[in-house]
Design a binder for these strands. Structure first.
Length: 361
DNA sequence: TAACCGTGGAT
DNA sequence: TATCCAAGGTT
């Protein structure tokens, strides 16, 4: 008997590609091989659903149509376009990478995965995605979709992590066809997004069901093996919203922490719960006169969920007759009608949208 | 390597 | 309400 060259069947790839040809969604970034546009779409889609990212994709390209336009912009302009999308280091890194491409690489993106990998914000997934889609390089992508599809197809009982990623990549590399690597990678991800979904997959609609070991063994519900869930800590934020004569106090987050480079109100951040009265005394101690003459309007606790933190925030709104003589140097006075030019975390914009009258609207 | 980085939709 | 997790990367 002839020795088996690979443990994967080449018919899997052709069945998948045929399915992709008839079932693929018509998404805005499909039908272009322009590396800049592919790059923009791939960064936006990192840990982000298509429905959430699509509007940002259009807005981003409208504001920054070329890598030159992106490089010429300020990082604050880029942050503003990114406002509300989350994982803000993506925006910072794109801005830095655009400047590298324009200033050091003559405006041309690196033309293989290894070169792309050196740009800020481009890791193994994004390098492989751009290289295969824009340049036709036969490198396999590994994202959450691919991991789920491949662990099910071959019944791999390993969680995400170095060992599981290595094994899944090895199998994917055996499947990727040299003549259509971009479509193949996208087909794998599209199958994971539409058919081989988390929980109960839609195996009746699956083009590779007959090859699927998890289906055969009845393991689809259990695969992929879940990693241990992260511990979620609580943080208590107290925001002092000070207005006076159509101006407001804001400050920029530049610590190595969440929401880097975004703006917020002067804040007290605590690990424990504390009464609003005590918070006001702390604010007053830090900056006499800042909590005003009258009673501040204190919001109820607002809960904001991050991946590994729960933020419990309260807003203390005070209006002053006149500004205190000296303010902390991190605190910046800006006109209320200039707020729209700054990028805020969703917690803040949601509060402002809920109470427009407190912000002069 | 493990912890960190947001937001929102589905279940 | 709680949990999962999405076209991941950096430190």
């Amino acid at each position: 008997m002839k020795h088996k060259a690979t443990e994967t069947d080449p018919e899997i790839s052709s069945a998948l590609l045929a399915w992709y040809g008839r079932s693929r969604r018509d998404l805005p970034w499909r039908g272009t091989n322009d590396p800049y546009r592919v790059w923009v779409s791939e960064i936006i889609l990192q840990q982000t659903r298509v429905v959430q990212g699509t509007a940002y994709y259009h807005r981003f390209l409208e504001r920054f149509p070329t890598v030159e336009a992106l490089a010429a912009a300020s990082v604050d302009e880029v942050m503003k376009v990114w406002e509300g999308l989350g994982y803000y280091s993506r925006a910072r890194n794109m801005h830095a990478a655009a400047r590298t491409v324009v200033h050091d690489l003559g405006g041309h993106f690196p033309e293989d995965a290894a070169g792309l990998r050196r740009l800020k914000g481009i890791g193994p997934y994004t390098a492989a995605a751009i290289a295969s889609i824009a340049y036709g390089e036969a490198v396999p992508v590994l994202d959450g979709n691919v991991f789920r599809v491949i662990t099910r197809l071959f019944a791999i009982r390993l969680p995400r992590g170095s060992a599981g990623d290595r094994e899944v990549t090895r199998l994917t590399r055996q499947l990727i066809p040299a003549d259509a690597p971009g479509d193949f990678n996208q087909a794998l991800m599209e199958l994971g997004a539409l058919v081989c979904i988390p929980g109960d997959p839609l195996c009746d609609d699956c083009p590779v069901r007959s090859y699927c070991l998890a289906y055969k063994k009845g393991w689809t519900r259990e695969l992929p093996i879940a990693s241990a869930p992260p511990k979620v800590e609580k943080r208590y934020f107290h925001y002092l919203v000070v207005t006076c004569d159509k101006e407001i106090l804001v400050t920029r987050r530049d610590r190595r922490d969440i929401w880097q480079l975004l703006w917020e109100f002067p804040a007290l951040e605590l690990q424990k719960e504390i009464s609003p009265e005590k918070v006001l005394r702390l604010f007053e101690k830090e900056m006499p006169g800042i909590t005003g003459e009258g009673a501040p309007v204190i919001s109820p606790v607002i809960r904001h969920q991050l991946t590994h933190r729960t933020i419990l925030a309260r807003f203390y709104h005070v209006h002053l007759r006149r500004w205190p003589g000296a303010l902390k140097k991190e605190w910046v006075k800006i006109p209320l009608d200039k707020m729209g030019g700054l990028a805020f975390p969703r917690l803040i914009t949601a509060y402002m949208e809920t109470h427009p009258q407190r912000f002069g609207s």
